[in-house]
Design a protein around this nucleic acid. Structure first.
Lengths: 337, 337
DNA sequence: ACTGTACCTGAAAGCGCTTTCAGATTCCAT
DNA sequence: ATGGAATCTGAAAGCGCTTTCAGGTACAGT
């Protein structure tokens, strides 16, 4: 690898001082036009590209924003990543993305790495990190958190979370409104806040409508497809009168759907199904799956903008993410008896 | 944001010289045990973390590998990203991921950015960049390319691509073997190399089996779901005797599947369907979709390892990705008449 | 023609770290 | 004891850039 061209080489070539070249590069001060031209020529000729490290060392600004995602390959969070990219575009800042793989130790490691790289802000997507770590972080730099309810105070950071409980409640209410009375639930892991909230919403809706909460109608999964399949099988074995199932996320709903298919049960005719998260694929399942959609992309974008505004000392209008019920064809109307 | 602690502050605190602290940090040389202890204590006490920029500037090594992906939210490439993460794990190198959004200009911009950040190697996933740019890159640093057939020579880099044409051929051959004679094809965009190769494979198989290639049996999509839906509708209108469709990727196959559902056609009874790429969701479609799988994760991982080996001046055993036909339930056997 | 002002530009210091070089110690063999 | 090798440590230079500071030049006003 041929040694890179440096700024002083450009300066020598153009017959000016390094300071002048720097000024031209950054537009820090007015410079004589002919000199500027010469410098540009020299840059072109030598193929100069500035050394980011040297610059960052000198200015103390890294120009990068750290992003911690639970999983670089998660369809759910990747929408948010795209949003962050959009939000940062053209700002001069670029994201550094690391995954924590849902493990607290890896997350801490990742944050340390980002801090070493002197990111100027950080965006945390979901994750397991304890709240007080987040608070500590927020005290050091602007942070944005997605998918967790945490109060960071105005000074420290912003968090965007949707109301899982309310949405779950809406979803189950919708099921009840369509005449369903025996509604199963395949939940997420109980140590996962989102999962708990969705379960709570399920209970809320039942109680609100005067239906008894029956624990045997709830089976626990792990948010992955196979557990949805198994969960559905178990529910089916014990509850032949069940007419609808609320699955705590779309991935498990896909699994549940397959279980039904295997047993020759039709959706929605024999069984209604609703999911959660509205993954991109959910408009194309058979039939298209009713689910609830979080605007992950917009949330990511707003968080990026938020960080930028904080960095620039500006303010930004708050963002109220609104979840949306995506009513599709996986729910049938039950004749109420 | 409180100013960060520097190495010399640690040195002062521990009563040694900066050089010594540096040596302890990097294990560059033996150091008196008691001093080492003092230094560690000082580091702990002051909460020192090394400044990556200063280090990189001094050593000339950035410790990062650039990764260019077409789309940070593409389910197809994200597997490879995970693989790269795995491959780099524990190596001391970390990936910097940027997306090119399928646009040549953005890709060039991204590469420039990565170069500015002084990445020591680069991994390019798919993308539009012309071959000669890739060659130029390969001359500067070790690069790995995924999903393109390009000869970079031993010195410059490695590329991993699967044989789209052969796989498509295998897939269509499989269809023919199951008794299908009128087989439609929903292709990808014609300016996309993968798409062309898959189309070629389709023709190969037909001709090999003595079936006439009928251009009206081919409709072009754009690799997205909606175009699969439309494509299937069009095929159905013009070819009532068609019994199977080879769709150029799984995403379009999902769309095609939906079109069939809307028309009340059963898969595979009324129409057989095969896709390409074997997305994670494809084992959970209705019915599970026959497709061909590329080991994206392993390919990514190997590329990462390859870069590392090049950086260390080692060699690595070559990797021969093998595509795999995932035979599932979306294809029926036709009684041959 | 002379002073004051505005505008450009270069020298030099410094960002935080690594690394060479040479001096200072220690240790072993004789 | 004593010379030499082996080992440890600090001073200082340098990585490539930015930025302060002060000197130089050009120009307008009188």
């Amino acid at each position: 690898m041929n040694r890179a061209v440096t700024l002083s080489e450009v300066a020598r070539e153009a017959g000016v001082s390094p300071s002048t070249v720097s000024r031209i590069l950054n537009g820090t001060a007015r410079v004589n036009d002919t000199k500027a031209r010469q410098v540009r020529l020299a840059i072109e000729k030598l193929g100069y590209t500035p050394n980011t490290f040297a610059r960052s060392l000198a200015t103390g600004a890294s120009g990068s924003i750290g992003v911690l995602t639970p999983d670089i390959a998660s369809p759910f969070y990747n929408d948010a990543l795209s949003g962050i990219e959009r939000g940062l575009m053209g700002s001069g800042y670029s994201p550094i993305i690391i995954s924590g793989h849902w493990r607290t130790d890896e997350e801490e490691h990742a944050v340390a790495l980002l801090l070493n790289r002197r990111v100027e802000g950080m965006i945390i997507l979901g994750g397991q990190m304890p709240d007080h770590d987040l608070h500590a972080l927020a005290a050091r730099l602007p942070i944005g958190v997605l998918g967790r309810t945490i109060d960071l105070g105005a000074h420290g950071g912003a968090s965007l979370a949707m109301d899982n409980r309310q949405s779950a409640r809406d979803l189950v209410n919708y099921l009840i409104g369509r005449g369903h009375r025996v509604i199963g639930h395949i939940s997420g892991p109980s140590d996962h806040a989102d999962a708990r909230e969705r379960l709570d919403g399920y209970r809320d809706a039942l109680e609100e409508r005067g239906l008894r909460f029956d624990p045997t109608l709830v089976v626990q999964g792990d948010f992955q497809e196979p557990s949805g399949l198994i969960g559905m099988q178990r529910l089916l074995q014990s509850h032949s009168n069940m007419t609808a199932v609320f699955v705590a996320n779309d991935q498990m709903a896909y699994g549940a759907r397959l279980a039904l298919y295997r047993l020759g049960l039709r959706v929605p005719d024999d069984m209604s199904l609703v999911g959660f998260d509205d993954l991109p694929g959910s408009s194309y399942t058979m039939p298209p799956l009713t689910s609830v959609r979080q605007p992950m992309g917009e949330m990511g974008q707003w968080l990026a903008r938020y960080i930028l505004s904080r960095l620039r000392g500006e303010t930004i209008e708050p963002f109220e993410p609104r979840q949306e019920l995506m009513l599709r064809e996986s729910v049938a109307s039950r004749r109420s008896r």
